[in-house]
Simulated assay, not measured.
Amino acid sequence: MQVEDTPTQHAERNLDVFLRICLSIYHANIKTEYTMTVKSLSELETLRGGAALKARLKHVDDRLKWFGYLRLADHASKFGISEVQAKIDIKTYRYLSPTPPPERKPGPAAGSLGAGAYLRPEKFAPVFDVPASMDDLWATRFPEARTDEPLSLEVLSAPEHRIEPDDVRALLAATELRTSCRLRYQSMTSAEASERIVCPHAVVKASGRYHVRAFDFSRKRFIDFSLPRVLSSDLLPDHAPVPATLDDDWHKTVEVEFVAHPRLSPAQRSTIAREYGMQQGASVITVRRAMLFYLLDEMRLLKAIRQQDKDLADVPVWVKNSKYVADELASMESET
């Protein structure tokens, strides 16, 4: 027996159809605005929302350059946009790119990356002609909104730790995919480069360099690999991975209590407390034990903590719980 809809149900159904039509027209207009009229990056500046779109396109460029692929869902999640808008971003990028990534493969054809993945073409040319910097992978920068003279900012240019995308692409992909990888690595404790099979699980920026935290099958422990010293890398999807949960130093945390150095005057200690945002004269930083070395190194306190001598500290801060921190540092270093 067929039951007729009530007037209320008719109204709800009509409203649903109306909204679907409006959304279709809205998304079609967005697609036309960005994919049909944008012929160069410079034109983005003239569009409403062009700065935000340019930042998203830069992220697509960086993902293909450094990782070799981009997943649609990840792109949408990073920028808090819908998958419809993410698809528009990809189509805009493909339109601007001299070497556009192929259309994504649905279902099983997508392989281990899953559906919605766009792969870097074999002959790839970036859309953004700027020096390769991994900083752009983690921070999305938007242009300055001031219309008058911008604030003068002088940035010190220190020697750069260069990373070649071709050398580390497979290693970064292995880190995200939680699979193993073969790499050639030049350690500073060995005269010649050596081949390593590793299973990476995290990327860290510390002491001015990028590192990958990975299980080294030859040494049978988790250690850090400096990305600038990776000479080549290749995925080993058939090699058994090592779970990141086994990395005890990564999961154990250490609390480091920074205070103004005791040798300072009361007025100086007050200023240092304000400079470092200390509460009640102290700033407690919780750090992974695997990263403790880098924290102390960046604070220029490594030697002083190791020798438990505050007079060796040439900075205006000290570690109040220095004995505990020194013991944790020694425990970690004895394992490596």
Results as ranks from 00 to 15, higher is better:
Met1Trp: 07
Met1Cys: 08
Glu4Thr: 07
Thr8Asn: 08
Ala11Lys: 09
Leu15Lys: 07
Leu15His: 04
Asp16Met: 08
Asp16Trp: 01
Val17Tyr: 09
Arg20Asn: 11
Tyr26His: 14
Tyr26Ser: 12
Ala28Asn: 13
Val38His: 04
Val38Phe: 00
Leu44Met: 07
Thr46Glu: 08
Arg48Ala: 05
Lys54Val: 04
Arg56Tyr: 01
Leu57Glu: 06
His59Asn: 10
Phe67Glu: 10
Tyr69Phe: 15
Leu72Ser: 00
Lys87Asp: 01
Lys87Met: 10
Asp89Val: 11
Arg94Pro: 01
Pro98Met: 04
Arg104Ile: 02
Pro106Ala: 08
Ala110Ser: 15
Gly114Ala: 10
Ala117Arg: 00
Arg120Leu: 05
Pro126Glu: 13
Val127Asn: 02
Val127His: 06
Asp129Lys: 09
Asp135Gly: 07
Asp135Met: 09
Trp138Ala: 04
Trp138Arg: 02
Ala145Asp: 07
Arg146Leu: 08
Asp148Ile: 04
Leu153Glu: 10
Leu153Ile: 15
Glu154His: 09
Ala158Asn: 05
Ile163Trp: 04
Ala170Asn: 14
Thr175Ile: 07
Thr179Arg: 15
Leu183Asp: 01
Tyr185Ser: 05
Thr189His: 11
Ala191Glu: 13
Glu192Pro: 00
Ser194Thr: 15
Glu195Arg: 14
Glu195Met: 10
Arg196Ile: 00
Arg196Thr: 03
Pro200His: 13
Ala202Ser: 15
Ala206Asn: 04
Arg213His: 06
Phe217Ile: 03
Phe217Val: 03
Arg219Asn: 14
Ser226Trp: 02
Arg229Cys: 04
Ala240Lys: 09
Pro241Phe: 12
Leu246Asn: 05
Asp247Lys: 01
Asp247Trp: 02
Asp248Phe: 13
Trp250Met: 03
Thr253Tyr: 00
Val256Ser: 08
Phe258Arg: 03
Ala260Trp: 06
Arg263Val: 13
Ala267Cys: 06
Ala267Arg: 04
Tyr276Glu: 10
Met278Val: 06
Gly281His: 14
Met291Ser: 06
Leu292Trp: 10
Glu298Asn: 05
Ile305Gly: 10
Arg306Cys: 03
Lys310Asp: 05
Lys310Met: 10
Asp311Val: 12
Asp311Ser: 15
Pro316Ser: 06
Asp327Cys: 05
